Amino acid sequence: MPNGLLPMDDIEEVGYNRSTGFVWLTQKKPVQHRFEKIGKNVSYDTHVSAFVENRRMKKLHGVKAKEILIWITLNEIYIDDSNTDKITFGTPTGISRTFPVSAFEVEDEKK
């Protein structure tokens, strides 16, 4: 997964259950972030959780993307094995959007 996919601030707790793949992150307050390369706003709640597998986050909670004037809940994020240059975001209604993985990568600061 791209290193800039979850740009959360003031993280208070991070947890990972290896046997189930359950991951959770807790931050002090909700954060909104704009991914400039694709022109999308995303909201991260104070508690974000998901079940993580190889190139996939499912049963995602606490993340919403803005489409036109409404916020849409995201429940799945994955990179298809056949095309690792694209990342897909799914909603509970079955609608999905695909974007370049590069739009969610953050270059490391060189020291």
Rank of each mutant, 00 (worst) to 15 (best):
T91Q: 09
N83P: 06
N75Y: 04
S19D: 14
D45W: 00
V101E: 03
I11V: 15
M8L: 14
T98A: 06
E53Y: 08
T98C: 08
T26H: 08
L5S: 06
S43L: 13
N75C: 04
F51H: 07
T93W: 00
M1C: 03
K110R: 09
G15H: 05
W71F: 07
P92M: 04
K58L: 10
S49L: 00
G15D: 13
T46L: 02
K64I: 00
F104H: 11
K86P: 03
F51S: 02
E36S: 12
T84V: 13
R55A: 10
F35Y: 15
I11F: 01
K37M: 05
T98H: 04
N41T: 06
D80G: 05
T84I: 10
V52I: 13
K111C: 06
G4H: 08
G94Q: 02
E67W: 11
L5P: 13
P30M: 04
D10H: 13
N83D: 15
F99K: 01
I79E: 03
S43A: 13
V63W: 01
I95D: 08
H33R: 12
N3A: 05
N54E: 14
P100S: 10
Q27T: 04
T73Y: 01
V63G: 06
V42L: 11
T20S: 15
W71N: 11
E53I: 00
P100N: 06
E107Y: 06
D80K: 09
E76S: 12
N41C: 02
A103K: 03
I72A: 01
N75H: 14
K58S: 10
N54G: 04
V101F: 08
D85Q: 13
S96K: 10
G39T: 07
A65L: 11
M8N: 05
Q27C: 03
W71P: 10
L6V: 09
W24R: 05
F35P: 15
A65M: 14
G39E: 12
D85R: 10
E107T: 14
E109T: 15
E109Q: 12
T26I: 04
D81C: 05
N3K: 09
I77V: 15
Q27Y: 08
V52M: 14
P30D: 13
D85E: 14
K37C: 01
L25D: 00
E107Q: 11
F51R: 09
Y16D: 13
V48I: 15
W24T: 11
P7I: 06
S49N: 11
Q32A: 07
R97M: 03
F99C: 01
L74V: 14
S43M: 07
M1D: 08
N75L: 02
M1I: 06
D80A: 12
I77T: 08
G15S: 15
L69W: 11
I95R: 06
R56W: 02
E107R: 09
T20W: 02
T91D: 05
T46A: 10
K110F: 13
F89P: 04
G62D: 12
T91K: 00
T91S: 10
K29I: 03
